[in-house]
Design a protein around this nucleic acid. Sequence first.
DNA 1: CTGAAAGCGCTTACAG
DNA 2: CTGAAAGCGCTTACAG
Lengths: 326, 326
Amino acid sequence: MAGITSADVARESGVSRTTVSYVLTGRDGVNISEETRRRVRETATRLGYAPSAAARALRTGRSDLVLCILPDWPVGPVIETLLDELADELSGRGLSVLVHHGRGARPLSDLWRAVTPRAVIGFAPFAEDDLLAMRQAGIQVLGTLGEDRQPDPDLPSESQLRIGALQAECLTVRATRLGYAWPADARLAVFARDRLRGVQRICAELDRPEPVVLPVGLDVESAAEAVRAWRGLGITGIAAYNDDVALAVLAGMRAEGLSCPDDCAVVGVDDVPAARLAAPALTTVSQSIEVQARYLAALVLADLDGAAEKPGHPGHGLHLVERDSA
Amino acid sequence: MAGITSADVARESGVSRTTVSYVLTGRDGVNISEETRRRVRETATRLGYAPSAAARALRTGRSDLVLCILPDWPVGPVIETLLDELADELSGRGLSVLVHHGRGARPLSDLWRAVTPRAVIGFAPFAEDDLLAMRQAGIQVLGTLGEDRQPDPDLPSESQLRIGALQAECLTVRATRLGYAWPADARLAVFARDRLRGVQRICAELDRPEPVVLPVGLDVESAAEAVRAWRGLGITGIAAYNDDVALAVLAGMRAEGLSCPDDCAVVGVDDVPAARLAAPALTTVSQSIEVQARYLAALVLADLDGAAEKPGHPGHGLHLVERDSA
DNA sequence: CTGAAAGCGCTTACAG
DNA sequence: CTGAAAGCGCTTACAG
């Protein structure tokens, strides 16, 4: 039992709970003597008083939390960094970021009610009724990239598309026929689909043949098999779903005695630490996390402040990191 | 405003709020006709009623949340998987896992009050007063590996020690003098220290010279510099802080024209996907996440059930994954 | 400038 | 078998 309530602070400092509340929540409108304010604050810290968030949430209908809903698989260092930066950005305004892994696997509905967050940021689309309920409860709902409209599941994400396009633009400089290394983990298919479409779009624009899609697991065997197949088709450029998959392709080529980029070029996505350390160093598409995090934070804060106009979208912040593999 | 309260459900189904509460929280002690139960439940779902977690938390002083406090840097795939498994394990009992990144950087005190969690799991030591306050509030506080005692910051973590020891045991088979590849990121020093101590302990036991500690950043340059220095000292086995650092060492050796494991063996930690894809495939120490997650979940649930005895510790679940680099 | 009082939505003894 | 009522701790019109 922590047990220190605002009533304790009031009694101890000889004022009413009203005054305690006014002093502690910092309402400037009310005139309270500087002396009283000082005394209340002093008592509060002396008693170790911290307001009950549950009571406050019940009363005001809102907490100081921002809830991030992640998919139910390990999201990798990029998202992790994003979360971290977002938390930093928001903590200055008294907002805490809470992350829930496992969207999809576990029911979401209870969670946002349990937290009554100020905003919810989804890293994968929400179910229609979840979305509606959150909106009705007055919660700000944001998509990954600050897309305020709920992304239509059938509509490709513009930034995923851009990722694939950047990969293809890089590869088509030297390669005519492209391969696409599809991730083995089925849960990644949503993103893979859109990235692949980006590759396809560029191929179509340049009148190149369709990219040949092959699944690549995170082991040498699986990758070597794909590499052999691509090789047989005369393919000399591979766009991989992400760096992990790209690293597998590199290992597969090595196992097959092929040299990169001479025999075949490879481009990844994410720029994980291992990318620059690979042999050859991996060319990859990187997202500038800071920009993204700052934009997300700005959106949340704009809503918090009841700002009329939203901050402008900073663009996708994607760029190619050219190294040796392509 | 969602606005559907238990009162609405009560009115709509012609019973009192008491009855609604009894039916929905599933108290078996009270005798309520099956017919009434059915009607209440039906009305609740029809109206889309979900109890206010804030009110429930205020009333009972407890929510159905388990709060995990992570350090303020990207924790890597191992912890991510652990979190995910833990969430799965706990969701069966109606508990949701919420993760907070950024321990240290941002104030913790407000957070656990805002969430009133059932349990808090810390992946880095808590401040003494935070710990005290949480215990006082009746919150179960657990360490990373289910260590129920608050780890003494000056006392090495037994499992970190074991990690280093496993690395050293593997390397000392062939190498006499060892090097330790220390992570460039200062925030990792807490763990690096204990892993290094594990290496030192084995070296001492075998009457080998002290390992030579050198910082290694996640780039070829930095690693190559360290490799040259170790080389000059006649060192032929390197224990790396984790797989990322080990990959850097491998890249550094490659840059220096050295061959692994012939010129020098390397052992990492974590078994990230890139480890098995490296050239040569990286020998590494792996933690069995499932065991760890299940144990953590069991601890939380035992407390929830008011069990007298705690589940037995499953051991550290560490093992060496032998591949080609050592 | 400060206090008494209502009410957020729930759970739970307690009385019928 | 079911309901009226208290109370969790807070905020905030409202009245002095």
